[in-house]
């Protein structure tokens, strides 16, 4: 087994993946997407509460 060649491939793959990942903004996204919110959610607390409150406190209701 040519381990230097294996290392070359590994390093190249790591750097290429890092470059593409960094440029395209790929990473684990911690956010939840909440849709169909009213347009005045800013002024209507009852219409939009945080996902945490929505899911945990209100049981998703």
């Amino acid at each position: 087994m040519n381990w230097t060649r294996v290392y070359d491939v590994l390093a190249l793959a790591a750097i290429s993946t890092a470059t593409v990942g960094a440029l395209r903004g790929v990473w684990t996204d911690p956010s939840e997407r909440v849709e169909n919110l009213p347009k005045d959610a800013r002024n209507n607390p009852a219409a939009y509460r945080s996902h945490y409150r929505h899911v945990i406190i209100h049981g998703g209701k």
Partner: peptide, 20 residues
């Protein structure tokens, strides 16, 4: 404490919620 954050797109009615 718990920090809740949201990015709210008013035009689309979509929010990205996260907590820490």
């Amino acid at each position: 404490m718990i920090a809740h954050g949201s990015l709210y797109d008013e035009e689309k009615g979509v929010a990205l919620d996260f907590q820490e």
